[in-house]
Design a protein around this nucleic acid. Structure first.
Lengths: 205, 205
DNA sequence: GTCTATACTGTGATAGAC
DNA sequence: GTCTATCACAGTATAGAC
């Protein structure tokens, strides 16, 4: 019924989820494995256990499926950042460390692997505008967190310098998705630790 | 004659290049801008100023075009590394710095932007096996360069630790391609400088 | 909300003349 | 080595019954 004819294992015990959820889950796995353009609506439907036209009872366009996945996976970091802001006990450095922990673990959990697709050539159109805006905001959030750390460490960075450092840190975090493509055994704890250490060294704090 | 109906500017004065070259150039631009699966052979032909079936006088398959681009752009760093090895005056640290300079500038020149595609989901098949092998070798080359630096600095890294540091450095370099997608004005000199500085800080040398 | 049937378009690739 | 013509098929999306 789940009909996974692919080399990939069939979906894990998720039979009980709703139709729309199954579609999102199936699409997330396929998009991450093959990319957006190379994944057909038939592939998605088959993996979700329905017929291809039934997708359109849930989504008006194929691109809407990906857009929803991207937006859904980009949102949690913002809520977590808001929580961090409400804790005045934390130093800027601790906030950055906790945020990195949360965000990187998010990459390892659930569907977050698709998020990397938002930067790829095939996902540039205005159909994905909302996802792109969210991603830009996430990078700006990183910029503020890093700026605060540098300031509290007594070496505030200029605008240009901060942008460059932020880009590098953001690249490191997003790059984790690409590394997971190549090495599915990549360990979350280890990656959190190493990536955080690398970023703190770059900041020299 | 060059028939660029797209939003992109028409190919710069390259009318004199051979047919095969024009195809590669056109394909490189389109693949980088839209991805592999989302670029049709008709798009490539139009940009190259020929008709779609004429492509097949030069390449047997669409995927062969991308594979050749990837291989061609991944090769120069190996030749450069060989040159560096022949200069015994250089410290390991200087070799790494020069190699980064060469490789990162390569990302800014010519068609190298396609190289990033080799890690993407849509380019995973065995059609691209040669490109993947080369890319793996490039990462191993980075690993050796970094290992030498750490050793010469008196703090040799264990295998695991070296692999992790190498992955992070390699991610930073490849990530430059993604950053260029988002900001076409990204400056080569600046990027070389900042990326090199970040990597050296991560190595703490 | 799922199905069958199908419209319509775009795709990679081939045949064969010049 | 380029062209025109075309094949065979896969693609997204829609119509309409249940």
């Amino acid at each position: 019924m789940t009909g996974a004819t692919e080399e990939q294992a069939a979906p894990r015990g998720r039979r009980s989820t709703t139709g729309r959820e199954r579609i999102l889950q199936a699409a997330a796995e396929l998009f991450a494995a093959r990319g957006f353009a190379a994944t057909s609506t038939r592939d998605i439907a088959q993996r979700a256990g329905i017929r291809q036209p039934s997708l359109y009872a849930h989504f008006a366009l194929k691109s809407d499926i990906l857009c929803e996945l991207l937006v859904e996976t980009l949102r949690p970091p913002f809520e977590y950042a808001a929580k961090l802001r409400d804790d005045p006990e934390l130093t800027a450095r601790d906030r950055l460390i906790r945020f990195l922990d949360f965000d990187i673990r998010g990459l390892f959990a659930g569907r977050r692997a698709v998020a990397v697709l938002s930067v790829l050539p095939e996902v540039r159109g205005e159909e994905f505008g909302e996802a792109h805006r969210l991603r830009r905001e996430l990078r700006e959030l990183y910029g503020r967190l890093i700026g605060d750390v540098l300031e509290q460490a007594g070496k505030p960075a200029g605008e240009d310098s901060l942008r460059s450092i932020t880009a590098i840190a953001f690249t490191l975090v997003e790059g984790i998705n690409l590394r997971r493509y190549e090495d599915l055994r990549l360990d979350a704890d280890r990656t959190v630790r190493d990536t955080t250490a690398a970023i703190l060294r770059i900041l020299e704090v």
